[in-house]
Design a protein around this nucleic acid. Structure first.
Lengths: 252, 252
DNA sequence: CATAACGTGAACAGTTTTGACCGATTTCAA
DNA sequence: TTGAAATCGGTCAAAACTGTTCACGTTATG
């Protein structure tokens, strides 16, 4: 194996796992720790990754883990299911607004086949398709809210007031019969603009969001066309939502 | 087997495997290491592949001249030097516009200590600081231009017309006494807006850009305050630029 | 047929890369 | 805070690799 190939492998392995120890990497490419250390120094200088004590971390991972890794990964299956189910609601060549959030991120993953036009303020979603070709992706401007990778601020709001889309795929912190709430006040204005810009509004909410109320009110139920959730959502609240003419899809 | 046929087989084999060692290639075509080495030298000159220590790598279409690749170690030392030197020109807490491009990406890496406010249309730069905290980062909106990770289009232009910054750190495809040129027409409008928005305009240009002319004219020399380049820049052109009251910094 | 031109493989001296070692530094837990 | 363990960068000899040179056989050319 050539040095070049080894570096390439190191980087793509790190792309997969986000973080790896020196020993791990060394075994992976069949070279000594010293060599791996040297390679990492070069690769870090090149920019794609950052060295840490005992290993290295990728800078812009294309994996789900981005900034969300700290949050609950045990509901991953449900979020995946929601993602798949929601993606089915979207037709080919439609324009889709994608909110920032872990759940809707999983929707974005399943949209490639539809060759959609995506508009988003989520950096992880943007990274998902920044290299590929089939998806046309518009990123709103804004200030990066650290760790979440969300673009916020007036620039972001403005971007969504100027456009029109077929569907908005939204996330939120909680839903009750009184309406939808979210945790970050900063996001409210942006989300309202997203919903105004879209002909159809879909909320992706896993079961933990049902009956919960976050700090900032976002909108009442009349604005919502469809909700996609997982099989553990409380049946009573689901039924009540359906009574109010909201299509509720339970993924499983 | 003729020499011509051998070269062809080398190239197509590399097309398959991306990387290969000299020994590997030599066995593959049934010629000595020396011969393969000579063949590779010729093929490299013809383009299409790149020799590396101990073997060769094909130039994948993905990493063509304009594609942004963090693992692009081509002229890395010089770009690093330029990055460091340019970062020194920027004071603490200044607002900095950062263009999209591999060279200026390396400037961004060295700005963290200055706790600057960065405004950029480059996705890789944004990813660099999306997790950290010390840098306030504003991303312009726009359509993602695939491969490069640049945000383009009216949304991007507009973002830069509304702001004001202390410095703009720019890149380009070529520079002559007649002015600066760039390869993508799409970028011109954005770059012009960036330069208008900034009190000081710095261009980061490695030596390969000197005397070269790309397709689209960007601006003439009067708009430029400072140029940062590497030690291999042609001295004559550097002197001529200085005569025109442009500060030229040679990093090394 | 003689000879020059060329491609090939091997040998060689210089350079780069590699793996191991070591003292200094950082991290982690007590 | 302190001490042990892990990890770091720097150094060095060995190994691998590089470009160059040279001898040898093959192929054009007068």
């Amino acid at each position: 194996m050539t040095a070049e190939e080894r570096k390439h492998r190191l980087e793509s392995y790190l792309q997969e796992v986000e973080f790896a120890s020196l020993e791990d990497l060394s075994k992976r490419v069949g070279a000594s720790i010293s060599t791996v250390r040297r390679d990492l120094t070069v690769l870090e200088a090149a920019g794609g990754l950052r060295r840490t004590h005992g290993g290295a971390r990728i800078i812009s991972p294309k994996s789900d883990e981005f900034a969300f890794s700290a949050r609950d990964t045990h509901q991953l299956d449900q979020k995946e299911a929601i993602g798949r189910a929601c993606a089915q609601l979207i037709g080919s060549n439609q324009s889709v607004i994608i909110d920032a959030g872990t759940t809707v991120y999983h929707v974005a993953k399943y949209l490639e086949d539809k060759s959609p036009q995506i508009v988003t303020n989520s950096l992880p979603v943007a990274n998902l398709y920044s290299a590929a070709g089939r998806v046309e992706l518009v990123l709103s401007g804004g200030v990066i809210y650290p760790r979440l990778g969300v673009l916020v601020g007036p620039l972001a709001v403005e971007a969504f007031t100027k456009i029109h889309a077929d569907v908005a795929v939204m996330s939120a912190g909680g839903i009750t019969l009184e309406g939808v709430t979210n945790s970050h006040g900063l996001l409210i204005d942006i989300q309202l603009a997203m919903m105004r810009a879209a002909a159809k509004v879909i909320f992706c909410l896993d079961h933990t969001k049902f009956g919960r109320r976050s700090v900032s009110p976002l909108c009442d139920l009349s604005r919502i066309h469809t909700i996609v959730t997982d099989s553990r959502a409380p049946t009573e609240l689901v039924a009540q939502l359906r009574e109010r003419n909201i299509e509720v899809i339970v993924a499983g």
